[in-house]
Design a protein around this nucleic acid. Structure first.
Lengths: 220, 220
DNA sequence: AGGCCAAATATTGTATACAATAGTATTGAC
DNA sequence: GTCAATACTATTGTATACAATATTTGGCCT
């Protein structure tokens, strides 16, 4: 998938925001950024437009674009939607998943386990992401799949923070097992609930998320 | 909410596509369109970028943007997601809806009825949209609300076609009653199911949608 | 001194000019 | 006559120049 310079820059700006390189509310100066990326304002503005439409920054006409790091409430809202989306994917996938996809899912899960044993968080994140993406894909609804991937990407940095909490990875793995079981049995109700619970921010997870808030940079 | 010319044009292009003014697969020529709208290519390109990111047209680098009218499969997929989103909104709203919102909901519903009695489809569409938007809003999740509104807007023209089928509007109204009832009783399970069913394309509605496909212009 | 209006400055929005890329047609060799 | 290479054309992508809008600063009046 080829990208022109403007789209490349859009990706890079996203990464920078996710990495916390900008203060909340900071204005993204077109001149400064165009100089930084070594391009003119035209492609840079296109990049900013893209980032704005993804909802990562806010664009105010004739004023500029301002980074908008989601606050705790907004994050909880996004996680609530994510958990419901995953739940739906699970519900549908339980009925529609193929044998080969089931095998791939088990493989990805095994790699997750291995990554934990090797104490390799980066590998875990990658395999975990794949695990979930397989489920999105097997929902048999490519529109749903795209939406889920979009939101997953946006929440990714916050999920990582969450998993740093003691015991969370182990719990997460146990939940994966339940999910795989439900999907292989074609039990859509179980799959639905297991996935909703797996992603939802409730109970301990709620406190962990709130506690970790604003401390992102400590864990990078 | 002020919009600059580029964003205005983006809206207009969307409308044109929804209205079926372009063939599926047709290339949106930048020069032609910029002349048509009386602006230069710069704001027009920004408009196209926006429309592309909304998923209404496909942009191929160095080739141009091509309109992509959703086919039956894609439509079914989008309706499936819409019905689930509405279902979630209903589930949450049942627990969170305020008294005043409930009143507004009943008011909107009454206006829907009135519109039918007066044989005024345009009024019905507007009030029906409001009815659903109140529920999105009362989900208490503004992120979910925004996503629901976005998809609602995209599916709007197709919903209209559907409602043209005999008996559909009456059935739709009866479903509204059930939804209001469930919400006023705070019954989240009923609200969830009623809304999913109300929006889902199943049974007769499936055949109607498929049958109506490609006949949009007959009903405008 | 404080507030308000106006000029200056900075920044976004748009137009035009130029560059790069993809698609098409023409010409030449076999 | 067909295929391929190359020049040509059309179209998108980017840079720069200009216009419009918002913000800031400085001066004036009260």
């Amino acid at each position: 998938m080829y990208l022109n310079r403007a789209d490349q820059i859009a990706e890079e700006i996203q990464e920078l925001i996710f990495a916390g390189s900008f203060e909340d509310g900071e204005r993204l100066d077109e001149n400064r950024l165009s100089e930084k990326f070594g391009v003119s304002r035209t492609p840079l503005r296109e990049a900013l437009k893209k980032v704005a439409l993804l909802g990562i920054v806010e664009k105010i006409p004739n004023r500029g674009v301002f980074v908008h790091q989601p606050g705790p409430i907004e994050l909880l809202e996004m996680f609530e939607v994510m958990s419901e989306l995953e739940s739906i994917c699970g519900k549908l996938a339980a009925k529609r998943i193929s044998e080969s996809a089931l095998k791939k899912l088990q493989k990805a899960n095994a790699k997750c386990k291995k990554a934990i044993k090797n104490n390799n968080p980066d590998a875990y994140y990658i395999e975990n992401e794949l695990f979930h993406k397989i489920i999105y894909n097997q929902s048999g609804n490519s529109f749903l799949e795209k939406e889920a991937i979009k939101l997953q990407k946006r929440l990714q940095p916050f999920r990582r923070v969450q998993l740093r909490f003691r015991g969370r990875i182990e719990q997460s793995m146990a939940e994966h097992e339940d999910i795989v079981k439900a999907l292989s049995f074609g039990n859509s109700t179980d799959a639905e609930n297991a996935l909703r619970n797996h992603v939802a921010v409730q109970g301990d997870k709620f406190h962990q998320l709130v506690a970790s808030f604003g401390k992102k940079e400590e864990y990078t």
